[in-house]
Amino acid sequence: MTEKRITIVEKILDANDRLANENRRRFDLAEVFSINLMASPGAGKTSFILATINALLDANVQIGVIEGDTAPVTLDSDKILAAGMPAVQINSGGNCHLDAVMIDSALDQLPLETLDLVIVENIGNLICPAAFYLGTHSNVLIASVPEGDDKPYKYPNIYRGLDVLIINKTDLLPYVDFDMDYFRQGVEMLNPGLKTFAVSCKTGEGLEDWLVWLKSKLPAR
């Protein structure tokens, strides 16, 4: 019997990343812009998606939604379907994040060729989704005011990988101790110059700027 050490140096999540690159190719081939929407539970992911769908109805933007949930409930995807857009519910089986494999199979169930935009509502969680690349074009995080202004300091990883930050529930600012400067300083340390939109999905305030940014990313048709 011989003993031997084999050097490997392989990224542990390499298999996920490779499939994610494949997902990216599918988006690009269909000319679909894609977003990985992350947030804690209840931050307003579904509300934000619905507000976006409704605001873009007149412009005839076709939006497919992939809803991740840890339990086999279709509450969120039903709302999307009711708003007139295709939705796929993936049950992550108690898992704390979506991965590239789940997106791959969800994409089989969406009419990609007819879509302009795909939004993935990730599992409500600020830790795990940050580690799994899905192949989407943009990482967007919703931080909501009632969660508190210290979240960038406590969950640095998710902030580092972001392309866009949404601060939601700004209508609650008068009722919550949320120090916007402290919050933004934490964000600035993790992701200097990060594109940020402060909105309220309830009143619609601030959504206009987000929509301008989003439209600039959509394929010209």
Partner: peptide
């Protein structure tokens, strides 16, 4: 970093 660097085997 998040790598599997090496393994030690018998054969």
């Amino acid at each position: 970093e998040f790598n599997l660097e090496s393994i030690e085997i018998q054969r």
